[in-house]
């Protein structure tokens, strides 16, 4: 039924099948920003001017900003592409990606931390014995 509203809206605007396109200016802005946001993290890591604890969050931040720059200026994403369905699919994906990444790292970090220390190579027989004993 929401289709009715969409059709109505579409007919009113005489909106043809024109997906959003960029302009030369838009592509150049995206390109220059990308160059800057690539050059800075590479320079930071290659020269090592800053402490590791500062460098890592900085390069992560710049990667995040650059992804947004690419989305906006190269992929022309906004709320109105395909009546917002593209953005909805993107938000769903971002949530999934965050859960996958954060969840895997969290769970497996804890598994690693709680593992029984195995400093020496263990033979299958000893391993079985430990498993029974533990």
């Amino acid at each position: 039924m929401s289709d009715t509203a969409t059709n109505h809206h579409g007919a009113g605007e005489d909106h043809l099948d024109h997906p959003p396109h960029g302009s030369f200016k838009g592509y150049m802005i995206g390109f220059v920003l990308s160059v800057i946001l690539t050059a800075i993290p590479f320079a930071l890591v290659m020269t090592g001017v800053l402490d590791k604890s500062v460098t890592v969050p900085l390069i992560l931040l710049m990667a995040l900003v650059q992804i947004v720059v690419h989305m906006v200026y190269f992929l022309h994403m906004n709320m109105s592409v395909e009546d917002g369905w593209s953005m909805l699919a993107l938000i769903f994906t971002v949530v999934f990606v965050i859960i996958t990444l954060a969840g895997s790292m969290w769970v497996l970090y804890n598994m690693n931390a709680n593992m029984m220390p195995m400093s020496m190579p263990v033979s299958p027989a000893t391993q079985a014995a430990t498993a029974v004993g533990g």
Binding site: A63, M71, L75
Partner: peptide
């Protein structure tokens, strides 16, 4: 076009997480 730009976005993740963070750590 969408595919190509998407691959560039994935590459941002690759060079940041794999290469830069690997060397920085």
């Amino acid at each position: 076009s969408m595919f190509w730009h998407f691959l560039d976005i994935v590459w941002i993740g690759v060079f940041t997480f794999v290469y830069l963070m690997g060397v920085a750590q």
